[in-house]
Design a protein around this nucleic acid. Structure first.
Lengths: 216, 216, 216, 216
DNA sequence: TATGAATGAGTCTTCATTCAT
DNA sequence: TATGAATGAAGACTCATTCAT
């Protein structure tokens, strides 16, 4: 997916370490995710990219510019066609929801996506344009997708109408917690993603209440 | 609760610039939450506290020390007695869970708690000791609490055993998403906390599936 | 005259090298005159002022700001009262002109004035605001002064009306050449200022033609 | 005159970007005059010459080398034969002086000569070898020329012996002021060169005093 | 204790210069 | 020969920290 961003290796051997923008962006993303914007030293980015500090400026006007470019490069927009998928999906809404959850988990826990998320949470306030972009291309689309699925389920009588269905993002919410957990507490208290995803699905579909019992 | 950290106002009037540690900590917390550790300038902290940069060093050895002190000061440990509450709670487990959720929401969205959370997410990696402390005093306790509640519900036949009950933190997970959302996307796409909490409770208790239908 | 710009020495002993703005300005002016704006290193300015690079920034926002401040501080405006002097001068216009020339030479060849002039010539294009200020406060006033003197001489029948009297700045012009010469060729071909001033006066008053002979 | 420095265009058509030394020198001279030595970026010189930064190094060893080469290339030595002209000039010394002044003005206000002068004034101190060369080839020769003319005038009884005749450079001095003025204050206070030259001649020949009146 | 000036170790950024193609 | 990428040594500017008062 991201591979489109990295042009194929050049035909002839390169100078020293092959330092095209893409590698700088990779290095930058990693450093920004690790140290935050202010805490990142361009020297470290350069070293990680195998080049020298000054070279960064051949491709990016400033640290800010690199930051924005790096985030934008990795911000892989959710495909809009999902809504069509929803419309044409042959199976049950439960299956569809499970599929969506698998996609979401599969995507959210890619290293790049994790890095991006961490950066957005940490630095978003200072880079509203990027936050807005991220929100528009990823968050909002994801929300529309899950809303469409829930709406379908309700329409077909598979899902309950109610407060949860009215704010369907809550259905996907636990995945965010898992992501935040992983980027924060993993070293002290690792999270078993498989189990968590299963618990998530279990909760989201059936709730915690015993079957047949009317919730308070 | 925090009051223990803020000594009672002195009996006599203070100088215009009243710069005790607590005010420095307040200022520091705010600045750290806003700009991150590396991005925070002690000069700004001082200005916000109404004092002068050098004065900070009268109370804190270094920026690091202030950072740790500020976080520790605001890190209000969850009271351990909750488990007793769970043991002695007279009502239904649903009621108990709703109560816990109210407590959680009431607490997590205090400005201080939000600031703390944001800082932990942003800077946790670089300050493992603090992250660990936060995890121990807040996260782990919260998890034990919710686990106790769920266990009680299951034991009393009110809650389903199953994947969710096995990883009960998932029950509280959506609140985290709300917190992250507020600290990140609120300006672009505000979240109605009341509605969200209601949807959360609705989902957590009943799931999204229609009643009486066995989930796939 | 400039002394007004240098506050009296402080009552108590100073820290290290006594580094108030005025000393930084002195150092800056010297360095700028010697190396031009771009060629001047703030480190050198600091060293010359007996301080450290960073200290400059306590007093000046940037190299630019120091540059402008330094020039403005040394730009001692010509006193406007000269015109009154012209109106009330009791002697002949020749005496008055000689007096003005003495003043001009006495002033233009002060080290500060030389430094200022050299900087204005070298950097004026890049700092139009300063050039304009210099022009307004020094050059234009000087020109008005000489114009007034010449007008007086013409009115009293002492000076010839004619092309020179119509553009009286030409009367003072040779002094500029002397200044430029001194700042440029002095090491190779020193200029005897006394002799030059005498030659200047001789030329300006009598011209090169023999008396009684009508020029071409 | 300069043509010796610019080789004739090649017989065959050139590539689009025709970047021989002469064009680099043109560009360099312009940039140096505009921004000074330190303030000039080779990248800008290259762009102005229609080539690329690295190419400059094919022709010049360093920025310094380009600087010197550029100045030397434009430094058109005054022709030594002037002295012969003086010796053989048929007309009056006044006519001869006027002729010399016309030549001087005609030459000094060429764009190249202006650029050169500005650079010499601005950077001369840092490049004594060039300053000395300029002095030797232009200034000193000019001075000899004017000295010869004045001497002739005095010898023929047309010019007064006296202080001005003893330091004949003062006769030409106003032209320098005009040059400095043009390169510095022209945007704020333009100088009418025709009028100035006329005033200059008027002053230099007749002085400001009324005819028939003994000065001072 | 509080201040504010000073320090100096960084950090970003620029740019003359080199080098492989 | 010309290019354009890369280098690395500065240089402007910042800011945590120190220190005299």
């Amino acid at each position: 997916m991201d591979s489109a961003l990295q042009p194929p290796p050049p035909k002839t051997r390169r100078r020293r370490k092959d330092a095209r923008p893409a590698e700088i962006i990779d290095a930058g993303l990693a450093e920004f995710a690790e140290h935050g914007f202010a805490g990142t030293k361009l020297e470290d980015v350069a070293r990680r990219a195998g080049i020298v500090k000054g070279t960064i400026y051949r491709y990016f006007d400033s640290k800010d510019a690199l930051f924005e470019a790096a985030l934008k490069a990795r911000l892989t927009p959710l495909i809009d066609e999902v809504e069509q998928l929803v419309a044409t999906f042959p199976g049950s809404s439960t299956e569809l929801l499970r599929l969506a959850m698998r996609l979401a988990y599969g995507r959210m826990f890619q290293p790049d996506a994790q890095a991006l998320m961490r950066i957005i949470i940490s630095e978003g306030r200072r880079f509203p344009a990027i936050t807005e972009l991220y929100h528009r291309e990823t968050v909002a689309k994801g929300r529309r997708m899950i809303a469409a699925i829930v709406a379908r389920g309700v329409a077909r009588g598979e899902f309950r109408a109610g407060a949860a269905a009215d704010l369907p993002i809550v259905v996907m919410a636990p995945a965010i917690m898992a992501a935040v957990w992983k980027m924060t507490f993993e070293p002290f208290d690792p999270l078993d993603l498989e189990k968590f995803a299963a618990a998530h699905a279990d909760l989201a579909l059936d709730g915690i209440l015993t079957r047949g019992v009317t919730a308070l």
